[in-house]
Amino acid sequence: MQDFAASFFEAFRLVAGLDSGLIEIVWLSLKVSITAVFIATVIGLPLGAFLAVTRFPGRSIVIVTVTALMGLPPVVVGLVVYLLLSNAGALGPLQLLYTPTAMIIAQTILVVPIIAALARQTLEDLNGEYRDQLMLFGLGSLARLRTLLWEGRYSLMTALLAGFGRAVAEVGAVIIVGGNINHVTRVMTTAIALETSKGNLALALGLGLILLIIAFAVNALVFLLRAAAERSAYA
């Protein structure tokens, strides 16, 4: 119990002191995870949309697979990406191992299925509701899809936030492919793992609190943006 009090104190001390090491770590966490979510969106959203509105043989298998991949163990992704990016691996010449780019790749792989699966469900439900109406407007399939994406934007935004949550909280993959190198690839979660392994439990928990606050802040920001967008749309 005393640990909890101490961790609140540690969190407060770190934040209040504007610890430069902490800022660096927080900034890298955000950079890596936001970039990963951005790329995962570019890949996962069209994939989910494609699965939502098309019918082809084997579609159910693809959907079940993508949905199951939401549960990809980060450590496995980390290992696979490590093996690929390692100098002994196929992509070794790119020299990406132990860089933030490697972490972005690993997190992107973790987040794509989340965005694709949630987008697929959202857009398929929406398409069921909208299909006839959009056909009546005389739109081609791409224009219909564009409208579905816009109409489902808030649910889709939640899918992106779910992906961001997964990315920013994940440690198993980034510690393997990033190496938790001080000033280079150390992010919030790997710093927490390191402090835990040093037995500095209060500090580790304090960092965890800060991570929670960051996740909260990102979600709150999106929520406020949404509220502002709605206000301006119906002003």
Binding site: E129, Y130, D132, Q133, M135, L136, F137, G138, G140, T147, E151, A233, Y234
Partner: peptide, 29 residues
């Protein structure tokens, strides 16, 4: 072919209104 015969309109038994303003719904069509 709805794209070739533009002069057709229909109101469904359960019309779907877009998640936008009233004006934007008409503008959209």
């Amino acid at each position: 072919n709805r794209q070739r015969y533009g002069r057709f309109g229909m109101v469904l038994q359960r019309p779907v209104l877009l998640r936008r303003s009233v004006r934007a719904n008409v503008e959209y069509a």
